[in-house]
């Protein structure tokens, strides 16, 4: 069984939910990324999403764009991300999130082979809609990699059904029509949309985009299987760098932040 399927099967059996922190690989450098991945394991995060820096990320807001720019400015290469993952143990199962531009350039089969060898359990390719994903899906199946599909608030029910047919691992539900980034308010119809999606599939549903606060975790968690937190973490790295904090201090800050979200996830009141 793929580690992602195993994870959600175990969580479901225990009546628990997942926290999926997102990191931009190599921001500000790869040893720091490896260190945070180990910290995520230490505090009990369930799965982690590793963003591959890309020069033209059209689905990302300013926070993640800046992180990608910082990493690429230091000459980060795709191969180095794969090498880093091997050294980041123990860590939660990892999913690579990246543009299809990067996969296409390496070639689908070579890329999936490398990603699997490096230890990735799944792929999220936000600019590869379900109808363009056949070839990548086959390559992922051959190596027991999950290919996670995204569903947006603008997705019709009919389309959602077709996307679910193409999905494995979990469904990534995008909370708001827009780019990644923190938001103080999430749309009110989100619970209803998740309810409708729940009727369509047994796959785990994780919600991302805009999530940064324990109160949001409390509100969303009854309607889904896990939450993805990205920009709120990346922003802590950016602020730590700007204030010339040591890597230890930045890791401790993010650890406290994720710890708070994990408590909220378990239904504990926010400290």
């Amino acid at each position: 069984m793929n580690p992602i399927e195993q994870l959600f099967a175990d969580l479901r059996a225990a009546g628990r939910k997942a926290l999926l922190p997102f990191l931009a690989a190599g921001d500000p450098d790869l040893p720091f990324t490896a260190r945070l991945l180990r910290e995520f394991h230490a505090i009990g995060c369930h799965l982690c999403e590793l963003g591959f820096p890309y020069s033209d990320p059209i689905a990302d807001g300013p926070t993640i764009q800046s992180a990608f720019t910082r990493a690429l400015a230091r000459g980060l290469r795709v191969e180095e991300i794969f090498q880093m993952l091997a050294t980041a143990v123990p860590r939660p199962p990892a999913v690579a999130m990246l543009s299809y531009a990067i996969i296409h350039r390496q070639g689908i089969d070579p890329f999936v082979a490398q990603a699997a060898a490096a230890g990735f359990a799944g792929l999220i390719v936000p600019d590869l809609p379900a109808e363009e994903s056949c070839e990548l899906r086959r390559a992922c199946q051959a190596r027991q990699m999950a290919l996670i599909q995204l569903i947006a608030p603008t997705t019709s029910l009919d389309r959602a059904k077709r996307i679910i047919d193409a999905a494995s691992g979990f469904i990534y539900y995008i909370s708001v029509a827009g780019v990644t980034g923190q938001r103080s308010e999430l749309p009110p119809e989100i619970a209803e949309n998740l309810g409708r999606l729940r009727q369509l599939t047994d796959l785990p549903i994780c919600v991302g985009f805009g999530i940064s606060e324990p109160a949001q975790v409390h509100a969303l968690i009854p309607h889904c299987d896990g939450l993805i937190v990205g920009s709120a973490i990346v922003r802590r790295i950016e602020q730590g760098l700007a204030r010339q904090r040591t890597p230890e201090e930045i890791v401790a800050d993010i650890s406290r932040f994720c710890g708070g979200l994990l408590q909220a996830l378990e239904g504990k009141p926010t400290p």
Binding site: I58, A59, Y100, A101, P126, D127, L128, P129, E131, E132, Q149, L150, I151, A152, P153, T154, T155, S156, R159, I163, I174, A177, G178
Partner: peptide
């Protein structure tokens, strides 16, 4: 050609 865009834009 084709369509390599985020799902949010597909319906539009």
């Amino acid at each position: 050609g084709g369509r390599y865009v985020p799902e949010t834009l597909m319906e539009a």
